[in-house]
Design a protein around this nucleic acid. Structure first.
Lengths: 339, 339
DNA sequence: AGAGGGCGGTGAAACGTTTCGAAAATGATG
DNA sequence: CATCATTTTCGAAACGTTTCACCGCCCTCT
């Protein structure tokens, strides 16, 4: 900029004024400056600008796994939204690990991101502290966090699973296996509650042996399913509370020599692009990923636009049960249908 | 830092020296400074540091679509690699659009990223100019670029498709439909060449009506497949040169009332996590995503470590044909198998 | 005892912007 | 033509670091 100013024979203040339109500069000087900018190929240094302005026009986004199709889609939507608004987004994957998450949030905060969208991992205590003394707006995505009172976008997980399990019950299933992720994130807790309540509402017992826990990965779903299928009285249906784990479920079913839906019905959380192309077409709870991503982006953009003092806004969106052919009717229901 | 210096009754230079370990500071002062840092909750401002140092420890990464599972995986691997090295990564999705790509690369360059990994889109001319006058190392991913002479990691696309088509031919297929993305990116060109050469090597004609072009999206695959299937003499197999398009292919096959592999065989580029769980299990060309991501990261990290003058390095990795059950033997071969 | 060499510490310049108050130029008015 | 108001331009400080040249000080060696 100094160089431009010299070539155009003006002061740097004038160049800055022209570039930012913060003051009127005469046509004559404008032209000289613009010419100089072109000649030199000048590009404004956003780092220096950020230092002075105290804003980077960059936000941080952390998700547990980008390969989980839910997060893939949400990241994609959020990236587009901020791109439109002229923001860059720094992406971090925490790999469901608490320490990694802390490090990454600190990394982002160090770099003076203007805001943060976090699909958090683990206990919220550390996150709360980090967020409190960093003075940037934060929106929590997918997972609420006790004690962190900030904008939030989540799914109504309890209701969504309630509906899915009720659907299975209506099909005649009585023993329904349930594979959960660990309880330290809210959706897993809420989904489990939905499972329990659906059973109770139908007068069915909640049996501990039918509930298994895994760490969100395919292999966990595989192991959990193996355990469920080797029960003395095995379930006739399995619901997996997350998407990567259901792959393990399907592989376990295959490896044990059973088939879906003939021998066992399967449903899971999170839709994916291939779900209605291959057999079996998986019955899933689809999250409104577009809406979730957009709402999260909007909440943050609104804060960034200056609306700092509004009370925290909590959005809970509705999931949608996508009924396909991976769950079959059982018992009396099946007979009345085939009759 | 000024504040810390005051509280610890030392100069800022000493604080800086301690934090960075660039000079020895006496145990006494060290302790006072560390205490002050804790008391105040001081965090070094990475922006000011970047301005002074001329490095941001941030890299830019642009991909056409993060929802394409190939790019999802590669992004994930790259993110992890740079995370380990203490770099942040800014992610941009260009949506296969040239202008978007230009804007985003400029955005990244403005923000003074230390390096760039680009899965480019469209013609390389503008990219070349942008990259030339920005003075940062660039590695090209997945797609080479005429005239831009820089580090590159690609797949040996021609060979990979050659093998896949040859496999179909060996199964007895003679009329093989081919759905390509547009030719302005190198992989599509090379894959097409592989298709042609495989046919020629087998003494088969390359028929124009069997080759269709799309714009990488599911809907393009759908339309192209519809066209292929309504040919007077329709192909017995279809190869899709990209992954999202094959979803369209499968939907078109279903909608037209055919089934795979009984009526038509299907294979495609890019493996995905569900490919061997559902029916049909798709035969795919798997790219070594882990290696591709790591190599790209390593090339860039090496440049960032100071190795600026080494001549451009071009890596071509091998794909792997994952044979599953979406392609069936035909004619004499089928009979000899069933005999 | 004086010279030389490390060591620990500091002041101040520099990175490339934005911005504020003041100065200069211009135009309008009496 | 002097005065005032308005518009345009500018100088310099500031943002929060790093770094370089320099300065005491103490130790060691002749």
């Amino acid at each position: 900029m100094l160089h431009v100013a010299e070539v155009a024979r003006v002061s740097v203040a004038t160049v800055s004024a022209l570039i930012n339109g913060t003051a009127t500069v005469s046509p004559e000087l404008s032209q000289r400056i613009e010419q100089a900018i072109r000649d030199i190929g000048y590009k404004r240094n956003a780092i220096a600008r950020s230092l002075k302005m105290g804003t980077t026009r960059t936000i941080g986004l952390t998700v547990p796994h980008i390969t989980n199709p839910f997060f893939t889609d949400v990241v994609s939507v959020i990236q587009q939204a901020f791109d439109r608004a002229g923001y860059a987004v720094m992406l971090c994957c925490t790999d469901e690990d608490l320490n990694t998450q802390d490090d990454q949030i600190r990394l982002l905060l160090d770099r003076m991101v203007d805001g943060l969208i976090v699909a958090r991992v683990g206990d919220g205590a550390i996150l709360k502290r980090i967020v409190d003394d960093a003075n940037v707006p934060v929106v929590l995505l997918d997972r609420v966090c006790e004690g962190v009172d900030t904008d939030t976008v989540v799914l109504d997980n309890q209701r969504a699973v309630f509906d899915a399990i009720t659907y299975l019950i209506d099909l005649g299933h009585r023993r329904i296996g349930y594979i959960s992720g660990s309880f330290d994130i809210s959706p897993m807790h809420d989904r489990m509650t939905g499972y329990r309540e659906a059973l109770q509402a139908a007068g069915l017992p909640v049996e501990n042996e039918l509930v298994r826990f895994g760490n969100f990965h395919e292999v966990d779903g595989y192991n959990a399913t193996m355990q469920l299928l080797s029960l003395h009285d095995r379930p006739s249906a399995i619901f997996s509370a997350n998407n990567p784990m259901v792959i393990g479920t399907m592989k376990a079913i295959r490896d044990i020599g059973l088939s879906c839906p003939e021998d066992i019905s399967v449903a899971c959380f999170d839709d994916f692009p291939w779900s209605d192309v291959f057999q079996p077409q998986l019955t899933t709870v689809a999250q409104p990923v577009q809406a979730i991503g957009e709402q999260a982006a909007n909440l943050l953009l609104d804060r960034l636009a200056g609306n700092r003092d509004a009370p925290p806004r909590k959005l809970a969106l509705k999931g949608r049960l996508m009924i396909r052919n991976s769950c079959r009717p059982l018992g009396a229901i099946a007979q009345s249908i085939s009759a």
